[in-house]
Design a binder for these strands. Structure first.
Lengths: 126, 126
DNA sequence: TAAACCTATGTGCATCATGCACTTATCAAT
DNA sequence: ATTGATAAGTGCATGATGCACATAGGTTTA
């Protein structure tokens, strides 16, 4: 439970990965917020991402120049805001990838330290 | 740059790992805040952790029953608050480990998806 | 002895991201 | 006309952090 806690607990999982994940999804296939929410929640079952979080991240990323939006008519339903990634967005994605690699390494280091401890029997298993 | 941003940018690295890292350090060797700050900043060079963040996390964890503190005299210097981990703290550490394993997996999944894309040449390398 | 410095702990304020709940709006179907 | 799915968004509260500052004990030095 960290950051905007509740039973969901963004302290984990998709935590702080929303921006790069959105950028990657948009890079793969330019689309709109509603579908991104579907993709997100289909991808990580159980881990529901708040619509508000998606929409706010999209608007913020547009403000920062990582994506561009354009209104698009739907065959059946209200108009949607379709997002495309920009050059800056691709750059931001690359930087995020580098940071995530570092983060993964840090987590691995931590987990290894923990395992060393349990292996030595300094801590019980159950 | 996420959460309390500035040039430091906790959005990465030690991001949201402070609590489990502190618990692990204290489990290995009960100690006080100031030394934990040293350990932290020695461990991850370049990534400076704010003293305020450490102290606040320690007090919070004590309020939640994960650690216990006791004042202790120093040979040379002001008294320090020495922290010991509790059973609940060990439990919390174990839970954090599980979540970090999940988080690591998510990062890996993401990085693999990204690599698939670059491998297909859908995105330039530089 | 006073000033300067290191050790040690902490707080106040601003910023940022998220969860939860709610609102608005379009379109289709009943 | 009402209901329901699609689609986008906002307001408020909560929580974590950075930065700067405050406080205080102890040691060293001028």
């Amino acid at each position: 439970m960290i950051a905007g806690k509740t039973e969901n607990g963004a302290g984990v999982s998709v935590d702080r990965m929303i921006q790069p994940m959105l950028l990657l999804l948009i890079l793969k296939k330019p689309t709109h917020g509603y579908e991104l929410i579907q993709s997100f929640n289909a991808l990580h079952e159980g881990e529901i991402v708040e619509p508000g979080t998606i929409y706010r991240n999209l608007r913020r990323m547009e403000k920062e120049g990582f994506v561009l939006s354009s209104w698009e008519a739907s065959e059946s339903g209200p108009a949607r805001r379709k997002y495309d990634i920009t050059e800056d967005g691709i750059k931001a994605l690359r930087e995020a990838v580098l940071k995530l690699e570092q983060q993964k390494q840090q987590i691995e280091d931590f987990l290894n330290e923990y395992k060393d401890l349990t292996a030595r029997g300094d801590i019980d298993e159950n």
